[in-house]
């Protein structure tokens, strides 16, 4: 091992994992475990990042929210959400610390327009992050977005389906539901498929700092004998012993 170290020093060799990392400090994701796996110890500040998932509601936005909150508070540049599938809900965003005044929603009518908006926004230098939910997007189009986002110093996040085998995106992350039945926190399973200076990672679980997955005492009777009434009304009138909600920290 000592030989290897000295060889590397002498011959000017370097490990792939150390490329760029020192020089390109990433944006802290708010999840130390995830930071350890990401080049530059955090989310990239530019380039295209693909988040692959098939299901909504697994925490794909909550995974980004600490970083988005930070961007929205530290920079006056905009955060653009392009054709989100549902309404990005302001009370929740606010609760995560995202400053709503930097947020801009764009709803183009066609896929062609989505691409146009992305390219305009990325190249404009006026956005810190651009999140998009494109229906279809081709590799060559992603390459263009990659160039535009480097030029505009903007982080571009594309939410795509998991059936996309490969793409020119700089960072590709596979997300799947990770809520364990017995865990108190909600969680998400993360697998990094592609990153600078590193191989594909194994799947690891990122825990959210919340209590969403926590179960309040038995609700099963709610659904026994569905349509009728006695049980359900009884339940609803019964003062349910709720564990007190801890204020959402962070």
């Amino acid at each position: 091992m000592g030989d290897l170290e000295s060889l590397m020093k002498k011959s000017g060799l370097w490990r792939a994992s150390s490329i760029d990392c020192e020089f390109r400090q990433g944006l802290p994701s708010g999840f130390p475990l995830l930071d350890n796996h990401l080049p530059g110890s955090g989310w990239p500040v530019d380039g295209v990042t693909e988040l692959l998932h098939d299901q909504y509601g697994i925490g794909e936005l909550r995974l980004l929210s600490p970083a988005l909150a930070r961007l929205s508070q530290e920079q006056s540049r905009r955060i653009l959400l392009v054709s989100p599938p549902f309404i990005p809900y302001p009370p929740a965003l606010q609760a995560c610390g995202v400053d709503l005044s930097t947020l801009l929603i764009v709803q183009p009518k066609s896929d062609q327009d989505i691409l146009w908006v992305l390219e305009q926004a990325l190249g404009s230098k006026s956005c810190s992050a651009v999140l998009a939910w494109p229906q279809t997007i081709l590799d060559k189009q992603i390459r263009r977005l990659q160039i535009a986002s480097k030029e505009g110093n903007t982080w571009n996040i594309l939410f795509r389906k998991t059936n996309v085998r490969s793409s020119p995106a700089e960072l590709r992350i596979h997300l799947s539901a990770g809520n364990a039945p017995l865990s108190f926190h909600s969680a998400i399973n993360v697998k990094i498929l592609k990153r600078r200076g590193g191989w594909e990672s194994t799947t690891f679980r990122v825990d959210f700092d919340d209590n969403l997955n926590q179960q309040t005492p038995d609700f099963s009777e709610l659904f026994v004998n569905p349509p009728v009434n006695n049980n359900e009304t009884k339940i609803l009138q019964r003062p349910v012993a709720l564990p007190s909600f801890p204020a959402t920290a962070g």
Binding site: G57, S65, P88, Y89, P91, G97, L100, D210, N211, A247
Partner: peptide, 14 residues
Amino acid sequence: QEVSSNENARPMFL
């Protein structure tokens, strides 16, 4: 904007 303090969980998407 002032951050309202709603302690109940709210979803990211409505």
